[in-house]
């Protein structure tokens, strides 16, 4: 993961430069929320947080490199009448989402749908770490009370393939703030 952080930083910097050069609208933001496992009996919901940049390459199309760190909550099992807890584990994800946005500003806000790919590092006590491909799709809304500040809420389905087959699917509900540069 430590190796990926500089790579992510360089990508973000390059995107900023490209964005500035082409005078496209660009924003950076942070968010936090809850990670809800879907159809997974062995883990519980946990917290997530992350950061992202967004370039509006076209008025209706955005590209969004992102980093998300999410946790699964520990799961309690009733084992022989005794409650025992299994640690949930963590996911560190780096990816790029493509956003289809409502063009322009609609009552100082915009809706969008997203689809993306990501690389996910899964860690859980007792199991070997694995880095796997993931996909994300979802929807969100960004409210822009000023030209530079956006308040955003998002629901993102995040599916991650597993080494031996199958996968883990999570619903990520988050809210955050974006700071905008440039003009559309």
């Amino acid at each position: 993961m430590k190796k990926l952080i500089p790579v992510f930083g360089v990508v973000l910097f390059l995107l900023m430069m490209v964005s500035t050069a082409s005078a496209a609208k660009f924003s950076i933001g942070g968010f936090a929320g809850v990670n809800i496992p879907l159809f997974q009996e062995d883990v519980k919901s946990g917290l997530l947080f992350g950061a992202k940049g967004r370039i509006a390459v076209l008025p209706f199309l955005g590209v969004e490199p992102n980093f998300v760190y999410s946790k699964y909550g520990d799961k309690d099992f009733d084992i022989g009448g005794q409650s025992m807890s299994r640690e949930g584990g963590t996911i560190t994800s780096f990816g790029v989402d493509l956003l289809l946005m409502t063009p322009g500003e609609f009552s100082r806000g915009r809706f969008y749908a997203l689809l993306g790919v990501n690389s996910n590092s899964l860690k859980r006590k007792g199991l070997a770490d694995q880095t796997q491909l993931g996909l994300s799709l979802g929807t969100g809304f960004e409210f822009l009370p000023t030209d530079i500040l956006g308040i955003e809420v998002r629901a993102r389905l995040h599916g991650i393939s597993l080494e031996g087959g199958g996968g883990r699917n999570n619903l990520e509900l988050s809210g955050g703030l974006n700071y905008h540069f440039g003009k559309e």
């Binding site: 599916g159 597993l162 199958g166 699917n169």
Partner: peptide, 17 residues
């Protein structure tokens, strides 16, 4: 992408005690 990912997007985990 959706076709390729269909194998793991429709997965779950179940626990046997």
């Amino acid at each position: 992408i959706l076709l390729v990912s269909s194998c793991f997007l429709f997965s779950g985990t179940w626990v046997i005690i």
